[in-house]
Simulated scan of single mutants.
Amino acid sequence: MIPALFLLLAGCAQGPGLDQRLSTFVGRSEGELVGELGVPLRVHEADGRRFLQFERRRGVAVAPPPGYYAPVYGPWGPRFGYWPPPPGIAMATCDLTFALREGRVESFSYRGEGCF
């Protein structure tokens, strides 16, 4: 009983959140950041800081609309059958922005429905 309960609870464990994953970049150099995340989409400089923006996209499954009944014509005439709709996929985006000062990551921010 106890080992089964332990395995059940271990199955519910989740990995680190986005804040924890991104905080590992704080203090690292711009080269390390680009090496890990790829080339930034946008770069902007202001007030002695450099801002690098990255964009992440991923497909997310969405609930399909309800199916419908439609006539099907066969060799014995029309009959009605159920036609389920195809599954849907939507694109979810997440914009990641890193602020660098003197070539080192100082802070980060993110926004979008795909940030998880």
Rank of each mutant, 00 (worst) to 15 (best):
T97Q: 10
D95T: 11
R49F: 05
G27L: 03
P75L: 13
A61L: 13
R28D: 03
F6G: 03
R58V: 02
A10C: 10
D47R: 14
F51S: 08
D95Q: 14
I89Q: 13
R58I: 01
L52A: 06
A10P: 00
A10G: 10
G31K: 07
A90R: 15
T24L: 11
E102D: 15
V72I: 14
R57W: 05
R42Y: 09
Y110M: 06
R79P: 00
M1T: 10
A61C: 00
G114C: 04
Q14A: 15
Y68D: 10
A4D: 10
G77M: 09
P3W: 02
L52M: 14
R104H: 06
P75T: 12
D47L: 14
Y82T: 08
H44T: 06
F116P: 14
R111S: 13
P66Q: 12
P78G: 04
Q14K: 15
P66T: 07
C115H: 09
V105C: 06
W83I: 13
R42A: 12
E113W: 02
P85E: 11
L5C: 06
A4T: 01
R57L: 12
A13D: 03
A70T: 13
L18F: 11
R21N: 10
Y110Q: 13
A13C: 06
L100C: 02
A92P: 06
S107K: 13
A10N: 13
P3H: 02
G59T: 06
I2M: 12
G88I: 00
L41Y: 12
A13P: 00
G74L: 10
V34H: 02
G31S: 11
G35D: 07
G88Q: 15
Y69Q: 10
P16I: 07
R21Y: 04
F25I: 00
G81K: 00
S107R: 15
V26T: 08
P71S: 08
F54I: 06
P71H: 02
A46R: 08
F80M: 12
L100W: 00
L7T: 04
F116T: 09
L9R: 10
L37E: 05
L7D: 15
S109Q: 05
F6D: 14
G81A: 15
G74Y: 02
S29I: 00
S23Y: 03
G27M: 08
R56D: 03
R56T: 09
T97Y: 04
V43E: 14
V39F: 05
R50T: 09
A61T: 11
M91H: 04
V72A: 13
P75Y: 07
G112M: 06
E30Q: 15
P78T: 07
T97H: 01
E113T: 09
G15Q: 08
A61G: 11
E45Q: 15
E32V: 05
G59Q: 14
G74C: 01
E102K: 14
R49W: 02
R42C: 01
E45C: 01
Q14D: 05
Y69M: 08
E36P: 00
C94P: 02
P3K: 05
F54W: 09
E45H: 12
F25K: 07
A4F: 12
L41K: 09
L96C: 04
L7W: 07
